[in-house]
Simulated assay, not measured.
Amino acid sequence: MIRHLSTALLALSLGACGSMDSMNPIDWLSSEESVVQPAELVELPQSLALRTLWSTSVGAGADDKRIKLVPFVHGGRVYAADGEGEVRAFDSTSGRVIWSRETGLEIAGGPGVGEGLVLLGTSNAELVALEAESGQERWRARVSSEILAVPTIARGVAVAYTIDGKLYGFDAASGERKWVYDRETPVLTLHGSSSPVISGQLVICGFASGRLAAVELDSGALVWDVAVTAPRGRSELERMVDIDRDPLVVNGIVFVTTYQGEMAAVSEETGTVLWRRELSAYAGMGRDNRQLFVSDAEDHLWAIDPRNGSALWRNKKLEGRRITGPAVVGNHVVVGDFEGYLHLLSSEDGRMEGRIRIGDSPMSTPPIVANGVIYAYGRGGELAAITLP
């Protein structure tokens, strides 16, 4: 597993104690011999002609910061932010800027959108709420550390998860803190966070310890807590089992992946593990009505049977290209890569069917699909809306 760690080590954190962002990860591993070379792109004989509906720029994007900026599509708008505080709302059909606001914030996670608010997490330990209609600031609240996860909101409660392992609930109208749920963070973790998911009356979140927990949305009281995978090995590096991407909740089942560990299906009601399979992943998951799709730590794309965790197919042709988590559009799966390409694959058998480049900078967050349109965001600030034939 360690030979593939170089991608993940683009950013690491030492729990709440400090950051290794300035350290070259390959130097840190010192004798890293077998870094996987990116697969070369080959011409696709009968590729689907993907088309750019519109493209624009969102300030400086994420730049070289290891932060979690993901476009949010809601109510005919695309909300996006950059790491230097620029927040914009675009018309989802035309790409026209509806409003733009320079907040002056060091945005590290977001935006999350709902109930008339745009939520932003910052590197300076703040959760900030803007008006979704105008971009004007509504409130801001202090938390314990950097927010590297996308905040979320439902039923009058705004939820944020901090990199030191704390899950917060705030009153969405006033920004007043309602509750906090705290878990111990391991010494060594990936520099990233799973974003909390609200499902009914539960907030479900994955933690750097490899545990998945559900708390009550209104009170923060623990409902259940389960180990998805247990740390193994002698060194802190070998024992890293972060849940670094968002849980996926489907029909009462929570699907989750861990780094250097397992993929699992967990009962939303009881926290009982229904099945596990060995699979290391930190990029994310997608699904259609029959299959789960997972980008693993080796940049292989898998189709998984949600009933039992068995593999339906695996595509290795993007190995080493640092692919994003997958999204589903029609009968296709789409992922981004480190050279700014979007790759379209058949959901039936994983064969490559199309490709388009949105820019020169890497994509590190999964594409977003809404109403049959793919919205992709590059780390250099490129934002594009892509359609299929």
Rank of each mutant, 00 (worst) to 15 (best):
S6E: 12
A8G: 15
L9H: 14
A11C: 14
A11F: 11
L12D: 02
L12Y: 12
S22Y: 12
M23C: 12
P25L: 06
P25D: 04
L29R: 07
P38C: 07
L41M: 05
L44V: 10
P45W: 06
Q46W: 02
L48M: 15
T52C: 08
T52H: 13
S55C: 06
T56K: 03
S57F: 06
V58M: 13
G61T: 05
L69A: 00
V70T: 02
D82A: 03
R88A: 13
V97H: 01
I107T: 04
I107Y: 03
G116I: 05
G116P: 05
G116W: 08
L119C: 10
S123G: 15
A129M: 02
E133W: 05
S134N: 11
E137A: 14
R138S: 15
R138A: 15
A149C: 09
P151R: 05
I153L: 06
Y161N: 13
D164G: 06
Y168L: 11
A172Q: 02
T189F: 10
G192F: 09
S194H: 06
I198Q: 05
E216K: 08
D225E: 14
T229W: 09
R234H: 10
E236S: 14
L237G: 04
E238M: 13
D242M: 10
V249Y: 09
E262P: 11
G284V: 02
R287K: 12
E298S: 11
H300A: 03
W302R: 01
H332F: 10
L342G: 10
R357N: 03
P367L: 09
P367K: 11
A370L: 09
V373I: 14
Y375L: 05
Y377I: 01
R379Q: 14
R379N: 07
E382G: 03
A384E: 12
